[in-house]
Design a binder for these strands. Structure first.
Lengths: 193, 193, 193, 193
DNA sequence: CATGAATGAGTATTCATTCAT
DNA sequence: TATGAATGAATACTCATTCAT
């Protein structure tokens, strides 16, 4: 791996281990055995590193999407892939709003992406309604389910932590089950919970 | 108001306006027109101020509870009261996990309180099941609804911000409607969404 | 002397000895035996120190002016007083244009003051013309003499240095003689050069 | 133009645009699209670049001199040529004394050259006295006029800036008129001011 | 000639906290 | 209670210069 990418990787790992404020650029450099000057040769500052890490995550997530999932199984499979990527960048979801208050550009991009994400979720649900797999006749109700799924996607891991539950990629994946439960009362052919 | 309480009030206000890292103890002192030394006479450090603000919030929330709500209306009324208090301390919910990584004691207390909060929510739902207002025959499903309500309680405001929606106490109260929607499919006498 | 004033004095002395870029705020602190943090408690940064030193100099110069000098002797006496003050802040005249490129506010204030200074010089010369001590019938010529005097006031010391001449307060005072020579051909009662 | 000369040209341009401290060797390299290593292959450091730029300017000025000017017109024509060269290296005159404090060799050479320059000016004036175009019977007065001309040559542009006047090659040339005004009272055949 | 990553000392600045008064 | 000067370690960042390729 190139030095430039290695810095991002090290930063990501350290951010996940503690938090972005505790991990200074000098810490990152020290952890890699390079000089602080070298790190700043590659990246202007920590803000830039965080923004680039976010864009990396977004790129990975985008690449994981071929087409909108057509079945519940495809949906769940896709959610698991996204959660796997999210897990690699979990520092971001843990500090999201704090990071926004430090970098308006990051906030702008994230919100833009998140609104697009919400639209895709809605499209998927609408396709399920059309194919009569979901029985939702009410726009407001549909919006609610979309919000429930997106909120869980973004905050389920945080929520687990507010209950002191041990954190792992495995437990993060429970968000898939959570989303499934949200849709359950509206599924035409009921699956078991 | 006493000087000691005034410091907490000023800190709370400034924290809400920006974020806890940006607001230094010297900023708080300056905003009040007192000396930094005086602030530290009253409180050891910023960590202590944040911890005490959390305890204040918790105390206010506890005081707002007489008994567990027996009706949906009582539940919603109670939720609105809690959201009003939460709004006053919104910096806390915005930075929660970040603050935990800086103060283990705060984390410990919050998790303890949050687990208790979860139990109360569950008790309320169980009483609704018993009184046949809710039709939930499945423990896992019940747990899901509890999680949905508690997650919304903690993260609905954050969620709104990740979509770039304007923030206000009013919009924070939409979390009540959200919780209601979660329970809706299981309500015996359906209300309109 | 108070610590706050002492910092300005030390900075002024060190600036005179080398140059403003070589003298860092940490150097000033070290020279005083105080911590770098303490210096920054009193002054935001070096730019502020330089600006305040300039304002101090200006204030001292303003105080030295009662009324416009009415005789050549009074004029020369006044010039000597100003040169004495200038000598204390000689770093400023040595780096003037460089300092302007680093601090637009300093530049603005200096230019404003300098234009006012030029007006006063012109008024003095006009009063000499009116009292028939100077024989200048030509506005352009008058402007030239004003410029010659003001240029010498600002750059005579620098000029001496470009010839490698030893620098001292004494030699700086030769600027008075220089100004006198400029006016000499127009003096009605000639003095000896 | 060779790479080596191109570096000097770029440095000169950038120095004129801001100031020598603000223009790092990396800036120069970036502006040329070459690597910092390459720049340092050609020149040891920024000091060397500045010194060589000074020597270039001096060489150009020397080349512009055939013989000492014999008439006022020839003198003015020559002054304009010199000011044109000076204008190309105006950063140098703007920061002169500051640069001396950073590079003793530069200072030594400049002073040596400047003393020689002063001698030439004096010779020209003496030739005018001999040919009875100037009426100066006094050595001290002659020295004064020499100083006035040389000071204007070096600092007229700086002086203009201390009055906030817009800077241009055109306005720099006013120094010629200034020098002419200095000699005017002593000219045997008066010209118009 | 040329690259460009790398160094590392330097520079300015911040801020929670202490402490004499 | 209160002041506010003082500390000093920490932090982010810069930049002339080196050097392996």
């Amino acid at each position: 791996m190139s030095r430039k990418l290695d810095i991002l990787e090290t930063a990501r790992r350290l951010f996940n281990e503690s938090n972005t404020q505790a991990v200074t650029t000098n810490h990152i450099a020290k952890a890699m055995g390079i000089s602080p000057g070298n790190l700043h040769y590659h990246y202007k500052n920590r803000e830039e590193i965080i923004l680039l890490l976010y864009r990396d995550m977004r790129a990975k997530m985008s690449l994981s999407i071929d087409a909108l999932p057509k079945t519940f199984q495809a949906l769940e499979a896709h959610q698991k892939v996204l959660i796997g990527i999210q897990w690699e960048y979990r520092f971001f979801f843990r500090e999201m709003l704090f990071l926004f208050s430090r970098d308006a550009e990051l906030q702008r991009e994230y919100i833009e992406d998140n609104i697009a994400h919400r639209s895709r979720i809605k499209l998927v649900l609408e396709s399920f309604v059309e194919s009569e797999e979901l029985n939702i006749d009410n726009e407001i109700l549909l919006e609610y389910i979309v919000d429930a799924i997106l909120m869980a996607w973004q905050f389920y891991t945080s929520y687990m932590q507010t209950l002191g539950r041990p954190l792992s990629r495995k437990s993060a994946e429970e968000a898939v089950q959570y989303a499934s439960n949200t849709m359950k009362p509206y599924k035409v052919k009921q699956e078991k919970v």
